[in-house]
């Protein structure tokens, strides 16, 4: 049933779509080739160039943005390093100051203790000296008194130097025996 349709002719004696004409075939070339030439010459280059330029501009902007970001990251890392270094340095300074303070405090305590000891020792020495001097004084006074008393008892003047030596030896023996 479809077979007659396939061979049917169109209006005005022209064949139906299934039977192509050579004239339309040639016309297609005649129309398409100038169309292609015009588009290739005046239309596509404009569009392609504009697109390529925009792509290049975007690519450049992206590259710039990447570079800026890399620079910023570099600066940030550098700043962080500087901050860490400054913080380390500050901590060092604080620690050193603390150590110095501690050393100074210990030294001050030590110095104070030494001075105190020295003062104490000196005081002891002075007391000891005073006591010894006082004892010597007392002893001399005692010897003088004893000699004077003995002189009075004996009634003659004795040899003061030899008597003194004798009394002192006796006193020494007394102190030792005591």
């Amino acid at each position: 049933m479809m077979l007659p349709l396939l061979y049917a002719t169109g209006e005005g004696g022209l064949p139906a779509p299934f039977s192509p004409t050579i004239g339309l075939f040639i016309w297609t070339f005649v129309v398409f080739l100038p169309f292609l030439w015009l588009l290739s010459k005046f239309v596509f280059p404009v569009i392609v160039k504009a697109t390529a330029d925009r792509e290049a501009a975007i690519a450049k902007q992206l590259a710039d943005a990447d570079k800026t970001r890399a620079d910023a990251a570099g600066y940030l890392a550098e700043q962080r390093e500087l901050l860490a270094a400054a913080r380390g340095e500050a901590q060092g300074i604080v620690a050193e100051a603390r150590q110095a303070g501690d050393r100074e405090r210990i030294a001050a305590i030590e110095r104070t203790r030494t001075e105190q000891d020295e003062l104490l020792a000196r005081a002891k020495r002075e007391i000891q000296g005073e006591r010894e001097r006082a004892i010597s004084e007392i002893r001399r006074e005692a010897v003088d008194l004893a000699i004077a008393a003995a002189g009075k008892v004996v009634g003659q003047r004795l040899d003061p130097a030899a008597d003194r030596k004798l009394v002192e030896e006796y006193i020494t023996t007394l102190r030792t025996g005591a």
Partner: peptide, 15 residues
């Protein structure tokens, strides 16, 4: 639609 004609599509295919 000229593309509904075999002569046109054949010419394009030949190109």
């Amino acid at each position: 639609s000229p593309t509904g004609n075999l002569a046109v599509t054949a010419a394009l295919a030949v190109m």
